[in-house]
Amino acid sequence: MERQGKAQQGELRDEWIVGGHRFSSRLLMGTGKFENAETMVGAVLASGAQIVTVALRRIGRSPREDDMLGPLGELKGITLMPNTSGARNASEAIRAARLGRELCGSPFVKVEIHPNPHHLMPDPIETFEAARVLAADRFVVMPYMPADPVLAKRLEDVGCASLMPLGSAIGSGNGLATAGMLRLILRDARIPVIVDAGLRSPSEAAAALEMGCDAVLVNSAVAASGDPVAMAAAFAQAVEAGRNAYRAGLMPRGGGAAVATSPLTSFLSVEDS
């Protein structure tokens, strides 16, 4: 594919750019669902992630809440990307995004609007509206979205910095169920494509990169694994392997060239050749 060629032009540093910022790691990490802050920070470090998502909540009344993210702020080279989780429509997401920017000082925002609390599928219409407003407000907008190629172009047109289509339902661990749609999104995208949600195993992350995705975002697959720190490292290796495989070009599929019994090209012999 076209995107592949660029990678093969002997670029020394295989970086990707989102919203004018350069990154070398193609693994983005979520910070939810970890048993404690120490494990979470250990996993983030092991993942090598340079973009880490966080959520925004109101402070509880209990005097001493555990500050999970305190240690993150001290890590060098990490961009915090607040999400808008909890928002059920565009205006809630816009509000959450502005609070997140205030709190993190980062223009990055993962727009995430899922009105149904059970399957958590993103609302395409509200997501589009929130992305439009936030992009105009100079956010680096990274929308979590259904793997829909038309929505992808619409989001690109309103100024999103990347697209984050789901591989399968969030938390389902069903992997790249949307592979066919992801290929269509990749074919025409002018901005980075990051598979977000649905991954369970590092091999699925590798497959996403082999397919030409620019990056993947994982959270549950690490946080809910047997050993989150080790799993984060495994995802980092898989993402790197997938990317390298993409740049190298996969070997042919199938059992070689079939030969026709009645040639389709016999009509060519007459004129010249």
């Binding site: 076209e2 592949q4 093969q8 032009q9 996969l250 070997m251 599929r253 070689g256």
Partner: peptide, 26 residues
């Protein structure tokens, strides 16, 4: 030119092109 310069395609390249998921300039 990135896809045409310097490298002569081999039969293996042709086979790969025929079974590639997302074929492009190369």
């Amino acid at each position: 030119s990135p896809w045409l310069d310097g490298r002569v395609a081999t039969p293996a390249d042709v086979e790969r092109a025929l079974t590639c998921d997302e074929p492009g300039p190369r």
